[in-house]
Amino acid sequence: MGLLDKQFNNSNVILTSVEDLLKWARLSSLFQMQFGLACCAIEMMAASASNFDIMRFGVIPRATPRQTDLMIVAGTVTLKMATRIKRLYDQMSEPRYVISMGSCSNCGGPYWEHGYHVLKGVDRVIPVDVYVPGCPPRPEALLEGIIKLQEKIRNETLVKKSAYA
């Protein structure tokens, strides 16, 4: 856990490193690119709604890739959509993260063998950070994916790796 996530009751001063602060800011304001591809998007909408309330993790849907750093690929990625997904991913601001939600975007799902029009996993066009299994995954599963991604961000380092380190 990061230092800033700990509760402090009677002290007004906390000490942390710049890296921890930046990572904390990053992981607690994951702005999500607002688009859905198939039935997983329905579960994603349910996760945004009041019962599951994805916003308590700082995930806010934004309508343009310039303001977002999280792409939730929710649904079947057809070959026609794959080029669009790649372009949208390119247009997102860095650092950017991708959650692949559901079997279809993980590996092709029910279309893995005979789907002539389906990309067999979105990781063939863009790098994926977290895979959420399910067909479709329940909103809790998506929330767990978000938490996993936050853990991943918390554990990454912003320091440039050098050969001597």
Partner: peptide, 18 residues
Amino acid sequence: IRPRRGYPNKLTSYECGE
């Protein structure tokens, strides 16, 4: 603090992915 790594595909104007 932002990273500056622009490349042509990133700098294209956003038209809903088209």
